[in-house]
Every structure is written in C-alpha cells, then in structure tokens.
Design a protein around this nucleic acid. Structure first.
Length: 311
DNA sequence: ACCCAGGGTTGGC
DNA sequence: GCCAACCCTGGG
C-alpha cells in the first residue's frame, strides 16, 4: 500500500524520539510488530520519493493498517503549512534547510513510550535504545516472520514482576547460585539506576493509574498526573505526553533546548529550563512539539550545537 | 589508566 | 529552591 505524504524515514527513525527505538532496518525497509486491537501485526515500511510504501502481515483490514501507519508516522500532519509558519519566523526560518520531511515518530505502545522516556533521561540515544531492545527481547512476546524474530514491548503486568538487579534476583530465586546466572532483571539491560523507577512505574500502571485515562485528560492534568511516576520529571513528562499521547502542545525542555532557545530568542542570555518550557508552549502553541523536534535537529546539523556547547 | 559527559531526576539540606 | 550524586558506556 502507498500513502502519499512526504517523510524522511531515515531521519524520523533515527532522530532519538523517545516513543520507541528505531525499527529493524534491512535494505531500506523498516519493520516491526505492532499490536492493533489485540492482533500482532508485522509492518514493513519503506520510503519511495514522496510516498511511504508499506506492507503488513496480520489479521486487520487495509484501512486499519493504513490508519495505524498514518498515526505512528504522523502522516496527516501538514508539513507545507508548518514550513510556511517556520519561514515567517526569522528565528526559525533556517530550520527547514536541515530537517526537511522530519516527522514525529509516535508511540505504537504507550507503555513502551513511558519506559523509553524514563530510560532516555541523562542517557545517550544509543544506550537507551539498546536497553529498550534488550527489555523487549527479555520479556516481550516473540513473533517470527520469514525467519526473523520480532519482540513486542512487555505489558505492564509482565514488567512489574521483573527484578531490579541481580542481588534481588539471587535473593528471590533459590535455584540461582551466583550473579552470573541472573538474567531476569532490569539492570542486566543496562538501565542502571533507572531500574527501580521502571519497576515502580509498572506497578503504578497496574494498580493506580490507567494509561488510557491519560489520553482523555487535558494537557495540564495529564502533565501533573504523569509527573507522579518515579523517574518522570518535567522533561520526560513532556516527552511521554508528546510522543506517547499526541499532546502536540508539549515542549520538552532540556539543557540543549534551553541553550538553543536562549540563543535564538533571548540574545544568548541563559533562561532557566522551566521558563523555556513556558515560553515554548506560549510562543508555538500546537506547533510546540514539532518546533522542539526541529530545533534540536537543526542545532545538531547546522553546527549551532557545537557553538553552544559548554555554555 | 584516568577523566568526563550524556536530550534529567531524586533526595537531602 | 539549590546542588551533588546517580548507572553505565564510549570517547578524549
């Protein structure tokens, strides 16, 4: 099937958005298993010029499959209109030259997005994506298509039963004798001190909080709610709301966004992160999420980031 | 070998 | 409210 919508698939997949790690790549085709209405569906996605071409294997209709791909890759978003907006802002006009056809890469699994976002905090992209892939391999459901293995992200109730580290695992499993035999714990996936956050988050989403409820909330209510989850501060909360729940008015603000926005809008005078967040939401409205995404990549690719490093 | 930073968050003052 | 510490990996 073909969807007529420009998208730079490589850029979108590798831009470090915390909805999920990049999909499995083989000869320009990105593939992964997505659960759609309790059906596991294999999607194979490929960019062809200004179109996104995809195939799928699974028990859903063509229309459902198309809608799912449109949602994940945000294909209904009008890029031309967004670029017109950017080109009318002197501070932002240059961005379109560096991030053309970059789109949001939205969650295929809200819980995966929560854990990925927690994992990304104070971490490098290569490391958090590898951790999430390890978690999928360890506790997700396995599907084999054409001789290749795919893993879904484990659901809330499965992750809550995983141990944090090998000591805890050793203590609880009488059949284990030494730490080398321990593999059923989060730290073995390289998540470090975030392991207890992830486990507590799983418990919270089993017992107290329903991910589906958050979709129904206002942005402010959702932000305050998700902030209560351990390992979730303001930056991670906005990532979860943007990539996981499609709150496009979120403006995830971290040190880099702070440096970039201070440079572009405050004459280089450093404004604190929380003010930057308020400024971004006020200034960019429903484009805030996209502007944040573009600012980061613009800075990375234009050399602005190097210039601002250390400030 | 050593040191440092990484798209933050937490807990202690 | 501020600030050091936090796990772990890769690069100087």
């Amino acid at each position: 099937m073909i969807i007529k919508a420009p998208v730079d698939l490589n850029l979108t997949q590798n831009s470090g958005q915390t909805s999920q790690p990049p999909w499995k790549l083989e000869s320009n085709v990105y593939s992964d298993v997505v659960v759609v209405d309790n059906n596991a569906v294999l999607f194979q996605v490929k960019q062809e010029g200004n179109n996104l071409k995809f195939d799928f294997v699974g028990d859903i209709s063509n229309k459902e499959a198309t809608n799912k791909i449109k949602t994940i890759f945000d294909l209904d978003f009008n890029l031309n209109k967004f670029y017109k907006y950017l080109n009318n802002q002197p501070e932002l006009a240059d961005m379109t030259n560096f991030c053309r056809d970059l789109r949001l890469f939205l969650a295929k699994d809200k819980f995966e997005c929560v854990i990925s976002s927690i994992c990304s905090a104070n971490n490098s992209i290569v490391r958090w994506t590898k951790s999430i892939d390890d978690i999928k391999k360890s506790w997700g459901n396995k599907f084999t298509y054409l001789g290749k293995d795919y893993f879904t992200f484990p659901d809330v109730s499965d992750l809550k039963n995983v141990y944090c580290d090998d000591l805890e695992e050793l203590k609880c499993c009488s059949n284990l004798n030494n730490p080398n035999e321990c593999i059923n714990n989060l730290k073995s996936c390289g998540v470090g001190y975030r392991a207890p956050y992830m486990k507590k988050a799983s418990e919270i989403f089993t017992l107290e909080m329903d991910l589906e409820d958050i979709s129904k909330m206002s942005y402010d209510e959702a932000f305050d709610t998700i902030l209560k989850v351990p390992g979730v501060g303001p930056k991670v909360a906005d990532c979860i709301l943007l990539y996981g729940f499609n709150f496009r008015q979120a403006f995830p603000s971290d040190v880099w966004i702070k440096r970039i926005v201070s440079y572009l809008y405050f004459d280089g005078n450093e404004v604190n992160v929380s003010k930057i967040r308020e400024f971004g939401m006020e200034e960019f409205g429903d484009y805030a999420g996209y502007v944040q995404l573009y600012l980061f990549h613009y800075a990375r690719m234009s050399g602005l980031m190097k210039k601002l490093k250390g400030k």
